[in-house]
Design a protein around this nucleic acid. Structure first.
Length: 757
DNA sequence: CATTCGCGGGG
DNA sequence: GTGTACGCGAATG
């Protein structure tokens, strides 16, 4: 294989293991890609009685997995004390899974550290580089006589650091690929690949099916000519790449996605798993070698933070971009904690250390409450201000030094959190604290840069700060996650205990200053005071900040805000159903139809238009004055439904299935729709979405009630009455406080002749 | 009426 | 590399 001449200047594009070492891809200033291989044997450590260590060393050596290299002294995570450990090297990074299987056999007295770190992280750490670092690569001539096997072939000189706010980016060429299948719902295309659209550098080509060899040949010609670094696909993992690989198998002409020879299996089954309280379906993934495959439909971070945010996180967490695109913000923060620990010379326990301590029933009762949530005072209000704590949880974790190893330390029993009594260490700064502090500062700096910038630069800063926002949001959840490496439930509880105290304090201060607190949730408060100025609200924020030590900001002042009651019992208010219009013109909508992903587009569109009309009102009088205009929109949409002129795609209900079609117990709409799919040979996996139209909600025969999208016929009729009901509900949400309930709305439709009296 | 089932939220 | 929350609302039987 071609081997580039050193020294070489460029950016680190990707890093992944190969036999005996790591592949390092460098993209130079001309955009040319270079593949380097660097021998690499990562270290890991074991502590325990000498005899057991000797036995372990003998076993691993015999299996040619790892070799002992001598004793070392490193810092223990939980205690912060130095610990003597036996250092090993993993002989071949590709055999890390085999090593872990071997180490899983219980060995009395032995504790293992660092053995399961991601290899790209270990490598970057050992060579002091990071993804997207601008580097000059030299051949490494200085041999280390002690461990010949560990001698790297490469030496890097890095320009700047991963934490620089401004950095030069490699000149990347992006190619966008979209495939059309037999059926194109709003989800992944299905069936056979019908055509392929390729866009790159302003050129767009569409290749139709027909002879697979021709299609693949033309795709390869384009890839060769334009030589993209990044292939951005639409549904690449779930549909396009496996479809192209399938064509290639028949045509024996593989698509040239990779820059090295790769044999891969075509996997069509993904996996379903439970996360965040719901089932998620993960399509199989098809990473490329020497290029990045970024599937915009299979990357939460790419969708939320664009390429700029992805690059930002990749640099900071040392997870290569292509991998970062497919991981969650939670693993990004975990990687940053690992990196911090490595840099600080801390031993990283293989499995989660400390078991939870014993708790009394009382402790459990108070500690497990989570965030504080008030019941709002239902109603429609004007002149309400909303104030929010900024990044409350992470800011508190830093402020109170809350980290798994600092909670309930032996040395500072007097520094207890409110209610629950766990204290946090004052002497040793925790790992979580050390990881978060620079991220909080960096996010602030990026927001300032954003506010001073214009156009694309502004957007880029915003994407980068958004990426950091996501990892800040998830780091708190990880503290309470029992499988997280640096999670500990007591730390999680300490955070929520402080959070409750701070919100209570904020409330008390607001009330002492004559504000009425209408509502408060976790880190936000809605307050009202007759004749209060904006300055007065800002002054209140300052007072709260001084009292609790965490920044709280004026989110805005509402022209009007509506806190809605429960639909089940109108006498009860609910915390998360409200809407309002800020003086800035922005809307804030929570929990209403429009925000729900299972509301049909037509209903969402109608409600959006109505809210926008109401948002023009400056106060309650203006709100009331606009009601007739809102009702006009309502009647207009009702007419369209009645006339039967609405397109079925605008009536589609989209829901996520949580089980296989056969497991649904009742004839719920979603169960029926998923069974229709299964019966016709299109399995919908738990976590995937199913789309359907309500055809006759109350039909005796269950099969007639709904129709899954792929099986709509041109003459399929929708259930007008049912959709009118959904529309009424959306109007009711907006006009509830003026007495427009379902019955009154139906009377209006009858008066206008939309429905019979 | 009880049971089943999906959704939201963060800045 | 994965947060098995928690409460609401709708639909079913």
């Amino acid at each position: 294989m071609y081997s580039p001449a050193l020294p070489l200047t460029g950016w680190i594009f990707d890093v992944y293991p190969t036999s005996g070492g790591m592949v390092v891809w460098i993209v130079d200033a001309e955009g040319k890609s270079h593949r380097l291989v660097d021998p690499f044997q990562p270290s890991f450590y074991a502590a325990g009685p000498v005899a057991a260590l000797r036995q372990l060393a003998a076993d691993l050596s015999r299996m040619r997995l790892a070799a002992p290299v001598g004793m070392a002294r490193r810092q223990e995570f939980w205690t912060g004390e130095p610990r003597d450990v036996l250092e090993f090297i993993l002989l071949d990074p590709e055999r890390q899974p085999a090593l872990l299987r071997r180490l899983a056999v219980p060995r009395p007295g032995i504790t293992l550290y660092d053995c399961d770190l991601p290899l790209s992280l270990s490598y970057c750490h050992a060579r002091r580089v990071f993804p997207l670092a601008k580097v000059v690569v030299f051949p490494n001539d200085a041999a280390n006589p002690k461990f010949e096997i560990r001698n790297p072939k490469l030496r890097f000189e890095v320009e700047g650091s991963a934490w620089d706010l401004e950095y030069p980016e490699p000149p990347l060429t992006l190619m966008a690929l979209t495939g059309q299948g037999d059926e194109q719902g709003r989800g992944a295309p299905l069936g056979k690949l019908r055509s392929l659209t390729i866009s790159c550098e302003g050129e767009t080509t569409t290749l139709d099916e027909g002879d697979p060899e021709t299609l693949l040949g033309e795709l390869n010609t384009l890839i060769r000519r334009l030589d993209p670094h990044v292939l951005v696909t639409d549904w690449g993992d779930a549909f396009l790449v496996p479809a192209l690989l399938g064509l290639a198998r028949r045509a024996e002409a593989p698509p040239e996605f990779d820059r090295e020879v790769v044999r891969r299996r075509i996997r069509s089954a993904g996996r379903s798993y439970f996360s965040y309280g719901r089932v998620v379906y993960q399509a199989p993934s098809y990473p490329f070698f020497g290029r990045w495959h970024l599937d915009s439909r299979n990357s939460f971070l790419l969708k939320e933070t664009a390429l700029a945010g992805l690059l930002e996180l990749s640099r900071l967490s040392k997870v290569p971009v292509q991998k970062m695109a497919r991981t969650s913000p939670g693993s990004a923060i975990s990687m940053m904690q690992l990196d911090r620990a490595l840099t600080d010379g801390i031993l990283i326990p293989w499995k989660k250390g400390e078991p939870e301590r014993w708790k009394t029933a009382w402790d459990l009762l108070v500690a497990d409450k989570g965030g504080l949530v008030y019941q709002p005072i239902t109603g429609l209000y004007e002149g309400v201000a909303e104030i929010d704590f900024a990044s409350m949880y992470p800011a508190m974790m830093v402020h109170h030094n809350i980290s798994p190893e600092t909670v309930d330390c032996a040395c500072c029993p007097d520094n207890a959190a409110p209610e629950i009594g766990y204290s946090t260490c004052r002497r040793r700064e925790g790992l979580v604290t050390r990881t978060l502090r620079p991220i909080l500062l960096r996010r602030q700096a990026l927001k300032r840069l954003r506010d001073a910038a214009f156009g694309p630069a502004r957007e880029r800063y915003d994407h980068r700060q958004t990426a950091l926002k996501w990892i800040l949001v998830t780091c708190f959840g990880y503290l309470g996650y029992k499988n997280a490496r640096f999670g500990r439930i007591e730390a999680h509880e300490t955070v929520t205990a402080y959070a409750r105290e701070k919100l209570l304090t904020a409330r008390a201060i607001a009330e002492a200053r004559g504000f009425r607190v209408l509502h408060a949730i976790v880190d936000s408060m809605w307050i009202q005071k007759a004749g209060a100025t904006e300055a007065e609200s800002r002054d209140l924020c300052r007072a709260i900040r001084e009292a609790v030590g965490i920044a709280i900001n004026l989110e805005g002042i509402y022209k009007w805000v509506s806190f809605l009651p429960s639909r089940v019992d109108p006498a009860v208010s609910v915390a998360n159903r409200y809407l309002g219009a800020f003086r800035s013109g922005e809307l804030k909508l929570r929990g209403i139809d429009l925000r729900r992903s299972d509301t049909p587009p037509l209903v969402a569109e109608a409600q959006q238009r109505m809210v926008e009309i109401l948002a023009q009102a400056d106060d309650l009088a203006g709100f009331a004055a606009r009601i007739p205009e809102v009702l006009e929109v309502f009647v207009e949409y009702a007419w369209r439904l009645r006339e039967g002129q609405v397109r079925l795609t605008d009536l589609t209900i989209k829901r996520t299935v949580s089980k296989e079609a056969g497991e649904y117990k009742t004839n719920s709409q979603i169960g029926l729709a998923s069974r229709q799919m299964a019966d016709r040979g299109v399995a919908v996996h738990p976590g995937e979405r199913v789309r359907y139209v309500i055809t006759d909600a109350d039909a005796r025969s269950a099969e007639d009630r709904v129709r899954a999208i792929p099986f709509l016929a041109p003459d399929t009729l929708y259930d007008t009455g049912k959709y009118l009901e959904l529309l009424c509900r959306a109007v009711e949400t907006l006009l509830w406080h003026h007495g427009y309930d379902h019955g009154r709305l139906l009377r209006i439709l009858a008066e206008r002749g939309v429905i019979p009296e």
